[in-house]
Design a protein around this nucleic acid. Sequence first.
RNA 1: GGGCUUGUAGCUCAGUGGAUCAGAGCACUUGACUACGGAUCAAGGUGUCGGGGGUUCGAAUCCCUCCAAGCCCGCCA
Length: 584
Amino acid sequence: MQTPLMAIHHHLIAAIRQCLGQADWSPAESLVVPASRPEFGDFQSNIALTLAKPLGQKPRDLATAIVQQLPSDAPYEPPEVAGPGFINFRLQKTYVESWLKYQMQDPRCGVPQAAQPETVIVDFSSPNIAKEMHVGHLRSTIIGDCLARLFEFLGHRVLRLNHVGDWGTQFGMLIAYLQEVHPEFFTGQKEVDLGDLVTFYRQAKQRFDSDENFQNRARQMVVKLQAGDPELIAAWKFLCELSRREFQQIYDLLDVQLVERGESFYNPFLADVVAELKAKGLAVLDQGAWCVFVEGFTSPDGSPLPLIIQKSDGGYNYATTDLAALRYRVQQDGAQRIIYVTDIGQSQHFAQVFAVAQKAGWIPPGVQCIHVPFGLVLGEDGKKFRTRSGETVRLKDLLDEAIRRAQQDIETRFAAEQRQESPAYIQQLARAIGISAVKYADLSQNRLSNYVFSYDKMLALQGNTAPYMLYAYVRVQGIARKGGVDFTNLVPEFALTEPTEFTLAKHLIQFPDVIAQMAVDLLPNRLCQYLFELSQKFNQFYDQCPVLAAPEPDRTSRLGLAYLTAKILKLGLSLLGIPVVERM
RNA sequence: GGGCUUGUAGCUCAGUGGAUCAGAGCACUUGACUACGGAUCAAGGUGUCGGGGGUUCGAAUCCCUCCAAGCCCGCCA
């Protein structure tokens, strides 16, 4: 079913085509948007103001002419031309009510399935093997998961790829070091965890930087490894497995699904990628390395900046891997959209990779490669988020701390309310709230900017936080419990009377438009904003309108509003990767 | 030197291809519990939208320029 916004949109297009006498006219920008102020109605169109000038007409006259071409049986009151030429739309009450009813019975809350399902790859998280996940992986993991959930919900085939750093010079270094200093590592005689590995990695790096003989051994190891030496492959697999177990704990905690397909996966295709670029005349030998130059990229010294696809020592680097991955994803996975969720610092790299792939003909028409960048996580001092001692914050520690603080809050509050709950329940609740708070704090921020990480703010019960929204949901469940109402069997006739009911209702029916917009701009904070406003509007309604105590038909109608609010909150939060709780 | 991102209320941030855009939350002050959970709601804003130009009937938003912060820029990813 068309949303009100879409209905008005289509009416306007038809009307404008009539007025202009152009059957193929289509708008360059959005024709109709939600009204900026309630007193101007529900939706507004500014199109007459934009169109009038080139036509040499007065905006108000054009607006009036457009209004006259709108259908007379439309689901809105006769539109008004206001001010210099705005067209204001006010939805008919019965139309709003019928839309609410439609959303009530639709499991998707009115959001249509994609007409043309695509294969969408979301490349996110991507930690490095033999290192721990740290705060730097937080945003990619959370934002990537959110976008994957969005596209899955819209009905696309989504491949969630974890492009882990599992291939490269660091492994030669690490394996060489372990063989020499900790041979027991490979024999299983000693229990090791990822923490040990990280220590070893640091030591290996130190050795690598200071000892030339060691450097050579490490390089030979890489060559042997990449050539498929069985012993080294086994060692490498052991390292990967160790890391994988550790990563999985975090993904389980975050409830994030990923398919691991690391850099090593594309190893067999690297030589061919380079060969193809050479054959197409795109690769040139420069200072001993094979490079592709594309316009618009400049080095610090002002010379053109190459994308190096084969190093002077014959090895390949991440640019080669990224190109091989891109080609594979298009040609083998059949991806129509490839979304890369990485920090904004890699923007230039991806722009370059996409440009080279474009030149090489690996991005056919209809395929989009999209870099979805995000800013840094900062500490409360405004600098890169670190521990007190200046170390990088381990992701596990960060999440555990959020849960610990959530639990503390809960226990304090329960004690104040003299509420008895089982330790298991408290633990589970703390986990849900702690993780949700971290996720929501991240997603509610415009992803392009850096944001300040604050446990106190994200766990606050007031404001634009996960707990505030979860509480709104819990309130609805409270109504159901208290009234013994089974929402799932509710088939309400809506009868809106109070202002807060209308305000809430009109916000509820905008949900599908918000989701549609999010699929275009890939900004989760827009959905967060919507859900926050929904919670606010619900709380205002809740404050003003008794539900259970109301006489019919208000009681049923209000139960419907409450239930639909909860339903949309639950669905919306699920797209953010945040679960709801029934009590808190 | 080139490029990218950011700069909006005391604090944290929305709004960014125009008009009906000066907003939210926090903090602070004051009200509202014999109503479904008060983890709520209501009321309270003296901001050069980083500065300066420009385009326009109209600019936080578009263009130019300058300033500040952060990041990226040939064999790491």
